[in-house]
Amino acid sequence: MKAVIVDRPGEPDALSVVELPDPGKPGPGEVRVRIHASTLNYNDTLVIRNPRTPAGHIPLADGAGVVQEVGEGVTDLAAGDAVFGCFFPQWLDGGPTVDNFSTTPGLGLPGYAREVVVAPAAQFERAPAGYSHAEAATLTVAGLTAWRVLFSDGGLKPGDKVLILGTGGVAVFALQFAKLAGATTVVTSSSDEKLERVRQLGADQVINYRSEPQWGDRVQELTHGGADIVLEVGGPSTLPQSIRAARIGGLVSLIGVLTGTAGEIPTGELNMKQVRLHGLVVGGRRQQRDMVRALDGAPLRPVIDRTFELDRLGDALEYFSSGVHLGKVVVEL
């Protein structure tokens, strides 16, 4: 089977297209899945460019395809089911149970940059009805992260005000989910072109954070008191403005650290405003199933910016890393 591996960890040309042995039939509790699509996430770039990644590692945490065969004891899935991957296969229900990526496909385990996967059935969930494989692949990381921020943890309800930083995969899903739920949205970007595109997707207000560096105050004005939920992706450089933008008692959900992993936090303002600051990473299978139920029959479709073939995964990574995309970058197999 065709696959892409991290052949030269840490080097600019780290990836190689290879032929690997077919993984064979599934064992008890396993499924065999033909992978048809994946999408790119920030963590994928970190793994591929990390010199400590083991040579031969198969990357990509998103994956979607069709079940070809099930092993003994598998009852939740059947041959012919369209499925997509679970980020934390062992986190079944309740609060967070995992604080590392050792059990995450594409990060700690072999990922989906390959044609066929044989793995425990818990690693896959049925795709929403009517979704293409490319659309389903966007849900593993980006879709589920946005769902958890807004609904599982944020308790979003109609009329709430949501601030969304950026126009990447999670951000665009958050915009779509929020509008589907009847919320008011404010989106930030440094690109006027992207801001116009998110307006077309339903954003109620937009802010160019380069021309308005004190955008937290601007959000306060636009929302007449601050955002109920803030989707925070930047980390130390943007967190102070996100806290400023939140309403008294609001929620700031930190899902990314694009500007670093440490920095100053305005603890006085955080305390006086009684803002809840919440760090999170994707979500568990129960949240994933809730999301799929909501999407079954819903008019929402993921925003796909551009599609690459698996042979061009390196080009896809360069395009993704340039930051020019809006929504998801897909890799088809």
Rank of each mutant, 00 (worst) to 15 (best):
I48W: 11
I48M: 13
R49W: 03
R49G: 05
R49D: 13
N50A: 08
P51W: 12
P51M: 08
R52K: 15
T53R: 14
P54M: 05
A55T: 12
G56C: 06
G56W: 03
H57E: 14
H57P: 08
H57M: 15
H57R: 14
H57N: 13
I58E: 13
P59R: 06
L60G: 10
L60R: 09
A61Q: 12
D62V: 06
D62Y: 09
G63V: 02
G63K: 06
G65M: 09
G65R: 09
V67M: 11
E69D: 07
E69F: 04
V70Q: 00
G71V: 08
G71Y: 05
E72H: 00
E72K: 02
E72M: 00
G73D: 07
T75V: 10
L77E: 03
L77M: 07
L77Y: 02
L77F: 02
A78L: 08
A78Q: 13
A79G: 13
G80V: 09
G80K: 09
D81G: 12
A82H: 14
A82P: 05
A82M: 10
V83I: 06
V83P: 01
F84D: 06
G85P: 12
G85H: 06
G85A: 15
C86G: 04
C86R: 07
F87V: 05
F87P: 05
P89Q: 14
P89V: 12
Q90Y: 15
Q90I: 05
W91Y: 03
W91R: 01
W91T: 01
L92P: 01
L92R: 11
D93G: 00
G94P: 10
G94W: 09
G94I: 13
G94N: 12
G94R: 12
G95K: 01
P96W: 10
P96I: 06
T97K: 07
T97S: 07
N100G: 12
N100P: 04
F101G: 02
F101V: 02
F101D: 02
F101A: 06
F101I: 00
S102R: 05
S102M: 02
T104S: 14
T104V: 15
L107H: 05
L107I: 14
G108K: 07
G108Y: 10
G108V: 05
L109W: 08
G111P: 06
Y112C: 08
Y112H: 15
Y112V: 07
Y112T: 06
Y112G: 06
A113Y: 08
A113N: 11
R114I: 02
R114Q: 15
R114M: 05
R114K: 12
E115T: 03
E115V: 01
V116D: 00
V116S: 02
V116N: 02
V116C: 02
V117N: 06
A119E: 13
A119P: 09
P120W: 00
P120E: 01
A121Y: 03
A121N: 04
A122G: 04
Q123G: 14
Q123D: 14
Q123I: 01
Q123K: 09
F124S: 06
F124Q: 07
E125H: 12
E125D: 07
E125K: 10
R126M: 04
R126L: 07
R126T: 11
A127G: 12
P128W: 00
P128T: 09
A129P: 00
A129H: 03
A129Q: 05
A129C: 01
G130W: 04
Y131P: 08
Y131K: 13
S132M: 07
H133L: 10
H133P: 03
H133V: 00
A134L: 09
A134I: 01
